[in-house]
């Protein structure tokens, strides 16, 4: 068999494969040209589309075709993002979506627009799917199970408040201690000046007792900076815990304005792709 013969035999297969790629690109071009967003998603991942939208089990992958536009992912994401973000905002009006810098395919998703709002996950525009922060979800799940008004860190907060009360008490007693110290020093000075060194047994005992008290007070006063530092630390820790509690409460409040429970919220997040494509299809 000559080279030419070999070429002739292989030609149809190759042309077929090229044809399928050209056809894929043509379809994608047409879908984009006609703003057929649902079709674009189908072309980007036909296996997912067939399995999840058309309910066909074990559908074939078209990864060998979609790889053709892998260098255009950012542009395709920029094309798809506004509509997807618009849809998600209408369905989850308490979520905020911020584009990830230099990553047009990704959006950071936050719950709420309040100070220090926490990130719920990352939205992938090309797969219309959300990767959730499991730690946050498990915290919310635990909080939702608590009785009304209960918080995850209740006990810790109570303990820290007790510690803070004690430390503040110690610091507020400092004025009293300073006055006491001054009185003792005056008494000692008087004892020394009156007796000019000739202490009787009673005076010696008084002096010793005053000196012991002074020593104790001075030692206690020396602890003030250390106690102040500890108080600052505890107040910081308290603020951290209270902030987290407030965030969890606000997050749950926001979720429950739209969803009856956390499970249906998480379910809705996991079904973004399906619900979005269905919404697009209904629109058309």
């Amino acid at each position: 068999m000559t080279n030419r013969d070999t070429q002739t035999v292989l030609q149809p297969v190759l042309i077929n494969r090229l044809d399928s790629k050209i056809q894929y690109l043509n379809q994608l071009e047409l879908a984009i040209n006609n703003n057929q967003v649902s079709k674009v998603y189908e072309l980007l991942d036909s296996q997912k589309f067939n399995e999840q939208i058309r309910q066909r089990e074990h559908a074939d992958s078209n990864a060998h075709l979609s790889v053709l536009v892998s260098d255009l992912q950012n542009d395709i994401a920029s094309f798809l993002a506004p509509e997807l973000i618009g849809y998600l905002t209408s369905q989850f009006d308490f979520l905020t979506f911020n584009p990830v810098q230099d990553e047009p395919t990704l959006y950071d998703v936050y719950i709420g627009d309040w100070w220090n709002h926490r990130q719920l996950g990352v939205l992938d525009i090309l797969s219309a799917s959300l990767t959730l922060d499991n730690h946050l979800i498990s915290e919310l799940t635990a909080t939702a199970k608590l009785p009304d008004g209960g918080t995850l860190d209740d006990i810790k907060i109570q303990e820290i408040n007790k510690i803070i009360d004690g430390l503040e008490g110690f610091l507020s007693d400092n004025t009293k201690r300073s006055l006491e110290l001054r009185v003792i020093e005056d008494q000692l000075a008087e004892l020394i000046s009156n007796k000019a060194g000739l202490f009787g047994r009673g005076d010696k005992l008084t002096k010793q007792s005053l000196e012991k008290k002074r020593e104790l007070l001075l030692a206690t006063q020396k602890r003030v900076p250390e106690v102040q530092n500890k108080l600052d630390e505890q107040q910081k820790e308290l603020l951290k815990l209270e902030k987290l509690d407030v965030l969890r409460q606000l997050e749950l409040q926001a979720i429950f304005t739209t969803f009856t429970d956390l499970t249906s919220f998480i379910g809705a997040l996991e079904q973004i792709y399906v619900s979005y494509i269905h919404a697009l299809q209904q629109k058309n």
């Binding site: 220090n116 910081k236 951290k240 606000l250």
Partner: peptide
């Protein structure tokens, strides 16, 4: 910490400190 403290303090009275992210920065 100071803004966190305002956030917590406000939330206890059902007010919400929100982020400002436009031409201005703050809350």
């Amino acid at each position: 910490d100071i803004l966190d403290a305002l956030f917590v303090s406000a939330a206890k009275q059902q007010f919400i400190l929100k982020r400002i992210q436009n031409e201005q920065t703050g809350a």
